[in-house]
Design a protein around this nucleic acid. Structure first.
Lengths: 320, 320
DNA sequence: TCAAAAGTGTTATCCTTACACCCATGT
DNA sequence: ACATGGGTGTAAGGATAACACTTTTGA
């Protein structure tokens, strides 16, 4: 006996302003923060992506540029308490990139649409000023404890390895792309609010850690983690940063944008050489209105690279 | 007015035997080749992946190891003639890896389940013996013509650039990961049977090219192209090859497997150094039963790497 | 002894990383 | 003149790509 299903679309819409990566959220007093969500109506829209663009534009008066499908979730129990009665709702997650926000007018209701620093949801992901202290203070010890509870429990890997790989303890390197792995660990260990809310407190140790990021509705923080992972990875082999930049920009602005997304600090010259060797930009003429120092030259994206090289991106190397 | 939807799951199940990459297909006289397909029943299965594993095991008596979600298609018109009446069917594509097939018994009916060389569907993708002649003979000229029809039509890129990037004409390098891009070009240009069948003959030039691979049902060949692209890419940063290998193997067997998947010929020593430096394998003791020459040492996968390095894979370089 | 496949050694080259230093502008 | 950010030169170390050659087996 087949059962019919309803499909929802979730969008992680990203923009970078000055030094902060921002994500479009819908907040209401009752339910907290959520990603924009809309139903998919197969009668009105030919493809999922068309459906997504359509309601996003209607709700936020924002035109999306780059859009990419992330993942489809069919997990029962996504919607907190399961009753197994109503229609089954599945959801497809999307990543979308937008130009810096002017101001986004929310929809009516008592909900509020706005841009928020994504590191508010993942404070441990921002390494631009060095390794965040909370990793060694709040997260590390608690994950060690959880890890010791049943170290042989092996799904993909055994717990100690997972923790070490994800958070780079014991001089293992930090891999900024593993945003999702890290969030999943914290969830499984019961260290984020979502875990308790979903009734997993018994699984881990519900040892209330101070401020492991703001929680989101349903599994939206998981979708956001997927989006960040994907974006951080894609940066390196496809020129997606430019979807987030204005028409012309300085090299430092470009670097700051990449740093905001990847959460790492980058070496100035090496970054510039990368951009230059990759022939990703061309001089746009003119100089920026200086912000305190010497005025910077303006550049624009060289769209031609997309037709020249196989994988034009910013091959940021290991550290620094 | 929301309309309910039915969800189907498609699996591209891959195994490599000797020198050929194989894909599990379901063939019937009426409908031709198809990927294994099953409905998703949200009542019986908690997640999509569980649902997939369940019917694959039931139908093919094959236990899947590695499974990865590829993409969700909601395109109307996927199922050839649209009537807009029946339930709307969407499908989620999966990539799965299996050990070399012993023999897979088909389901009853008049359909036949079997393993087929994936290059039967994409003959232009096998570069192990050099650039396939059909690219310059059959494909090149026809795509040039199509490209010239409306060179300014720009979706992602303009046609000439797309063709050059995808097929590497004019000394542009061949990127073995762009399997999907290439198939989409051929489809848009009306050079594969699926295009004509879907009623797109007018769009391109229906200039019957000889044997551009065997067609598949619905958009299954597109899903397969996505699977190959993903697998070829993943090979390079995650140790997925070993999901396709027996417990112990020789380095040459490993190389042949990688070559079968990536469709390229690899340099022997460089490949070995890569494997060694990556610390991906360890000696298993013993030697292979020799097949005509000097017996080779046996190795096994070192699972520990997954816990040691961030992206353990076979970073196959540019060419050779 | 010859074919067939296994298994090294070595070099030129490029890319990555990290040094440290100079330049142009506003206050 | 000095603070602030913009903008280079260059050298050490490592990874890559390509060279050709030796070794061990079975027939």
């Amino acid at each position: 006996m087949k059962k019919d299903i309803q499909l929802g679309l979730n969008a992680a819409i990203v923009a970078v302003e000055a030094l902060t990566p921002k994500i479009l959220t819908v907040t209401s007093a009752e339910t907290g923060d959520a990603l924009p969500f809309g139903p998919f109506d197969p009668v009105r829209h030919r493809t999922l992506e068309i459906g997504l663009r359509s309601w996003v534009e209607a709700q936020t008066s924002l035109t999306l540029g780059y859009v990419e499908q992330l993942y489809t979730f069919g997990d029962r129990g996504r919607h907190a308490r399961v009753d197994d009665k109503g229609p089954h709702i599945m959801s497809v997650g999307y990543l979308a990139l937008a130009r810096p926000p002017e101001r986004t007018d929310g929809t009516a209701d008592r909900t509020e649409v706005g841009w928020r620093d994504w590191y508010a949801y993942f404070p441990w992901e921002d390494w631009r000023k060095g390794r965040p202290a909370m990793i060694d203070e709040a997260i590390g010890p608690r994950l060690e404890k959880w890890s010791a509870l049943s170290p042989e429990d092996a799904r993909p890997l055994r717990r100690p390895e997972r923790v070490q790989l994800a958070f780079g303890h014991d001089n293992a390197p930090w891999d900024e792309e593993r945003v999702l792995d890290r969030f999943e660990l914290l969830y499984e260990a019961g260290l984020v609010e979502e875990a308790r809310r979903d009734g997993r407190e018994s699984a881990g140790l519900w040892d209330p850690a101070p401020n492991l990021g703001i929680a989101m509705r349903f599994d939206h923080r998981r979708i956001l983690a997927t989006a960040i992972s994907r974006l951080r990875a894609k940066l390196k082999y496809r020129p997606v940063v430019f979807e987030l930049m204005p028409e012309t920009f300085t090299l430092t602005e470009l670097q700051h944008t990449v740093e905001a997304i990847s959460g790492r600090h980058l070496h100035k010259q090496n970054f510039r050489r990368l951009v230059e060797q990759g022939r990703l930009v061309e001089p746009a003429g003119g100089e920026s209105v200086s912000t305190g120092g010497r005025p910077a030259a303006l550049y624009r994206f060289r769209r031609e690279v997309m037709g020249e090289r196989p994988a034009p991106g910013l091959r940021l190397g290991g550290r620094s």
